[in-house]
Design a protein around this nucleic acid. Structure first.
Lengths: 139, 139
DNA sequence: TGCATATAGTTCGCCATTCAAACTAATAAT
DNA sequence: ATTATTAGTTTGAATGGCGAACTATATGCA
């Protein structure tokens, strides 16, 4: 059913746009830049990561990321660590205070998710989780 | 159930991050900047909009938006139009070629949505749409 | 093995983006 | 009427991002 898919598509985009606006608004209030919060978010969710990988996820060049990470190291949000097997690579990971920042930011996300699904039954929430998991796997 | 909600929360964030990376990659290939595509996307979905409103959705100041829209007017993607009742306000809308660009970009989104939900049954897709609609209304 | 090629990250110069503040014009409030 | 508020623009300063040149390490292959 073509039209139905169109609706689903637009509903997804609308959701994405709204989440994006929400993220901006939240970030504006906490003193750090959006790229910094974004980086903390990614590292918090995925754990330590190589520069290259992180740059791809964020969508910037490694040149840009080097400068970005330098600033974040100064701000004590992240630290660099040698890669165990590949000496060209460098792992970036959250410091303790970076971890704290992640958890605080994550709490806001939790609250948002709770607010958005407030009228969902327990079963619906479970189904929603299943849907997202399957979609994320396909990505 | 606390833990379940945590999973749903993180699945949503993961989805958001992936969509964000996808959008970046798509935009890089088409010659226009990310904010420009973003603007076209918003106007295409929501129709003509005041500068203020648009700035809020995108997450920039109106000063930034003025410059941005100037460029897009030059590129013939959008045009300014007087607001019917409030003479302070200005409506921004897509031009014909802006509309074409929106539809082309939208096709990519459609394809992505189709790919991501390829293993979903018709009923599941319908339920997914219902979930997104309810969440978007709550936002 | 040894040499060519590829990959990871850094540095740096240049251009694009963004913000904040000052400003104009129109509207709303008292 | 006068004052306060709101929408949008302009501009100077700060920031962000890209791409090319460079260093160091790893991989491929004759």
């Amino acid at each position: 059913m073509k039209n139905q898919d169109d609706h689903l598509n637009h509903a997804i985009i609308e959701f994405y746009e709204k989440l994006s606006s929400w993220e901006m608004a939240v970030v504006k209030d906490n003193g750090f830049s959006l790229p910094q919060v974004h980086t903390v978010e990614i590292l918090g969710l995925n754990g330590p990561m190589r520069m290259k990988e992180l740059a791809e996820k964020i969508g910037v060049t490694t040149g840009t990321l080097t400068v970005q990470i330098d600033k974040m190291v100064k701000a004590e949000l992240v630290q660099r660590r040698a890669h165990e097997t590949d000496r060209r690579s460098i792992l970036v990971e959250l410091t303790e205070s970076g971890q704290v920042m992640f958890e605080e930011h994550d709490k806001l996300h939790m609250q948002l998710t709770a607010d958005l699904t407030i009228q969902f039954t327990e079963a619906e929430r479970a189904q929603m989780l299943d849907f997202f998991k399957r979609i994320n796997k396909e990505f």
